[in-house]
Structures are given as structure tokens and as C-alpha cells.
Design a protein around this nucleic acid. Structure first.
Length: 432
DNA sequence: TCTGGGGTCCTAGGACCC
DNA sequence: TCTGGGGTCCTAGGACCC
């Protein structure tokens, strides 16, 4: 049997733990730059606030309604998440962390237990110890466990845990479950199935396997089998990523190469950091840029390019240089850039690096490695971006034409303090 | 004024190999 | 007149997830 534990309105719940005044009110959490709604409290959902709604439209869409809007605070959410995961680790034989707010439990050897009761107790414990409300689904396959967790979330009568352990319960659950809500069926597949008259999970369950394979390919067939009770979707747990991406939209728009390069340097540095953290090195650096698709009055441009490194590496200077070179290949004058990003891929473990004849000298490489290692150490101790490569803050003063320090800032005007990880933040709040 | 970020897998088609 | 067969690897695009 598999369990799926899903935090209810994860980001909003994290905020409410430290700010109980938000309880019972419509609350939303916003994306970077306070752009879009990415999380909603049940009250906000009930009002009809949709995920992805631009923040600035909330006032127009819901006039006269007081909706609490918070900037996202991923440091806080990440820390709260790891506390929940720690409890799960102690409770279940083994767990697979699926995302910041979800984990699968592998319940091997627990078939004889009263799993319904066990799940209810686990949910209660997490609520009590961490303050996080969670819904739990338990079933013979991961797809069915996901479905069960949605029932647990939707209907209070389940008492936070829904168990599907018989064919009767399975078919009953499938019957009223919208096909588009199945794990593995996205918007496109749901549309396609709709044309074929397939609207519920049971409709989907009842069509022949060959037809599923033809229309939805192998991935769709796996989902279909899972609904029949055959577990065939393996653990999706990736120890080390195959690609690492850092990208951002800018608060405004950038029009000159230097500003863009400064941003891209930052993203490359962040990719390098994440790469070192998983003890990997990357062979390929991809840079992409795009203008603002919402500004139809401006000329549009988007492009990406990849550069191959002579030797896979994870040092900050090398990745920044490669990214800057790539940016030079796709940058065009005359556009208003809204977004850029860096992707590193072709990742291999750092202990088995194949050298190249055309590479840096070993001495230079070694210095870059030591420098990167030192930066990680300092930044870990003193906070992110305490120590950066100069190009990460480079800018040209438009008045004087001289180089100046660039202050890179992402807007988050409504951010809560990092209650669990930053003492200074907490002191500041209490002082207020 | 203002519209997120980070991943994976599968498939088809082309390049290339013997 | 007439030009094979069986593979692998890579990439772009499309689907999915949170």
C-alpha cells in the first residue's frame, strides 16, 4: 500500500502558524515580484480567487473584499516542510519526498494494521507538532493514493484520511472523480478525453487499454493501469537533478546588455551553487531571454542558446563566463527584456570528470574550485550573496557612463519574517 | 505601472554508424 | 531501369507534475 500526504494550502498554512490572525480570512500568497497568486486559503478559493491571478487584478475582481496578500517566503516554507517530512520519516517504513508539500509513504508490512486509524492519527500529530494541516490518502497504487488524498481534503467526514483498500471503494471513488483531476492527466489530455466522451475517472478506467495507448501513449497507459490497481509508476525520486535552472522575471524591463548580463551572472552563480550542492558538474550551459508577451505594443523577441564546456565543471567563474558568452550570442538591441534564465545540464558526478586538451590549466581550474568552495562556506555562514563574483553586481551608471554597483532586488513588499531560521527577523518583529 | 519558477518523461525525426 | 537493413544517439517539441 502507498500513502500520500499532502499539506493543505501549504504556503498559507505556514503563514498562519505564526500569524493566527490570518485564520478564517481569505489569504493568498504571491509569486516573486508579488506577481501572481500561487496559493490560496479555503476562504480565498470559496470567493473564487483563481490560481495564477495577477495580484494587481485582485482589487478589480473582488471590490470591497479584504483579501490578505503575502509575498512568498520560501525559506520559511522549506523549513516547515522539512519538519513535516521528519515526522513522516519516523512514522512510515520509508518515504519519498515528492515536492515541498507532498510525500509518498511506502507502507510495506503494515497491511494488517488499521491504516485508516493510523493515517488519522498521523495527520493529527503533524497538526499538533508543526501546526500544518495535512490530508492523507492510502491505496494500492500511487495514482489511487493521490486520488484518495483529494477525497480526504474535500470531505471533512473522512477525518483527514481516506483509505481505498477494496475494489468496491476503488470503483466508488472513480465514479465521481473528474478525469482531469487524475494525477498524470493534464489539461490537454482532459480536453482530448472530453471529446471522446470520457469525463470521469471511471469512464477512463472503462475504455480499452489499446485505445488508451493509442491516444495517450505509454504514460497514459500507466495511469490507466494504476487506476485498475496495478502499481506501475515507480518512485519518482531523483537523487540528483539532470538539469538545474534558475530564471526570473524582472520587476521592470531591461534594455541594455550590461544589465542583462548582470542578471544572467547571478543565475549562473546560483546554478553553480546548486550544482556543487549535489556534487555534480555540468557540460552544457543554456541561456534564454524573452521580452514581455503581455506588452503587445512592444516588439517581441525570445531566444535561447546552449554552449558546451570543454570540461564539465561547477565553478562559479567558469559558469558565469560561459553564460555571458551565450548571452552575447542571443542578445539583440532594441527590445525590452522581461525575463532571463540559465539552465545547466549534461550533469555528471564531480568525482569522475573527463579532462580536455583545450581546457584551462589545472592550476587555474583548482583556484576556481577553491574560490567557489570558499564562497559556499562564507555564504552558508553569513547568508546568501555575502560573497559574490563582481560581475553579479556590475552595472553602468546611465548618467556618468561609469561602472557602479548594481543593486539587484526582487520585489516582496508583503513578506513575513523567516520565523524559524532567522533570529534577527524575529527580533525585528517583536521590536515592532 | 502590474502577469512565477523549476523540473521530468516521451516521441518523432534526423544524423550517423556498420 | 534497378541502390538494404538494422541499429544508436541527439534534439526539439509537447505532454505532464508541483
Amino acid at each position: 500500500m502507498f500513502g500520500l500526504v499532502d499539506c493543505d494550502n501549504c504556503y498559507v498554512s505556514c503563514e498562519r502558524v505564526f500569524n493566527p490572525g490570518l485564520e478564517g480570512k481569505p489569504v493568498v500568497v504571491l509569486s516573486n515580484n508579488d506577481g501572481c497568486v500561487v496559493a490560496r486559503s479555503p476562504e480565498a478559493k470559496a470567493l473564487g480567487v483563481k490560481e495564477g491571478t495577477p495580484y494587481y487584478q485582485l482589487a478589480e475582481l473582488f471590490p470591497g473584499v479584504k483579501i490578505e496578500a503575502l509575498s512568498s517566503n520560501y525559506t520559511l516554507y522549506g523549513d516547515m516542510s522539512s519538519r513535516v517530512m521528519e515526522i513522516l520519516r519516523q512514522a512510515a517504513p520509508s518515504i519519498e519526498i515528492y515536492s515541498i508539500d507532498e510525500a509518498f509513504l511506502l507502507l510495506d508490512g503494515m497491511e494488517q494494521q488499521d491504516l485508516k486509524r493510523w493515517g488519522e492519527d498521523l495527520s493529527k500529530r503533524i497538526r499538533k507538532w508543526v501546526g500544518m494541516p495535512v490530508s492523507i490518502g492510502i491505496a494500492p497504487t500511487r495514482t489511487l493514493a493521490k486520488m484518495a488524498s483529494k477525497y480526504a481534503k474535500r470531505y471533512p467526514a473522512y477525518n483527514k484520511c481516506c483509505l481505498i483498500d477494496t475494489d468496491e471503494k476503488r470503483l466508488k471513488a472513480l465514479k465521481i472523480f473528474p478525469v482531469g483531476d487524475i494525477w498524470g492527466v493534464g489539461r490537454r489530455y482532459a480536453e482530448k478525453l472530453g471529446y471522446l466522451g470520457v469525463h470521469t475517472a471511471l469512464d477512463f478506467h472503462d475504455i480499452p487499454a489499446a485505445r488508451v495507448q493509442r491516444e495517450l501513449h505509454i504514460t497514459g497507459l500507466r495511469t490507466w493501469k494504476e487506476l485498475h490497481g496495478e502499481s506501475c509508476i515507480g518512485p519518482d525520486i531523483i537523487e540528483s537533478k539532470k538539469s538545474i535552472c534558475t530564471s526570473r522575471s524582472f520587476p521592470g524591463m531591461l534594455t541594455d546588455f550590461e544589465s542583462l548580463r548582470t542578471q544572467v551572472s547571478n543565475y549562473a552563480a546560483h546554478c553553480a551553487f546548486k550544482l556543487r550542492k549535489q556534487h555534480g558538474v555540468a557540460q552544457l550551459v543554456t541561456v534564454f531571454v524573452s521580452s514581455n508577451p503581455f506588452r503587445e505594443d512592444l516588439p517581441q523577441y525570445g531566444n535561447s542558446v546552449s554552449v558546451t564546456l570543454p570540461t564539465p565543471t561547477a565553478t562559479t567563474p567558469e559558469l558565469i563566463m560561459a553564460a555571458a558568452r551565450a548571452l552575447g550570442l542571443i542578445y539583440r538591441d532594441g527590445y525590452h527584456y522581461k525575463r532571463a534564465g540559465v539552465i545547466v545540464s549534461g550533469i555528471t558526478p564531480d568525482y569522475a570528470v573527463q579532462g580536455s586538451l583545450w581546457d584551462l590549466s589545472p592550476q587555474r581550474r583548482k583556484r576556481f574550485q577553491e574560490l567557489s568552495w570558499l564562497m559556499d562556506k562564507v555564504n552558508h555562514k553569513n547568508g546568501d550573496d555575502t560573497l559574490v563574483v563582481a560581475s553579479q553586481q556590475y552595472s553602468v551608471d546611465p548618467q556618468t557612463g561609469k561602472a557602479a554597483v548594481f543593486k539587484n532586488s526582487i520585489l516582496h513588499d508583503h513578506r513575513s519574517p523567516c520565523y524559524t531560521t532567522n533570529l534577527n527577523d524575529v527580533i525585528r518583529v517583536y521590536a515592532r
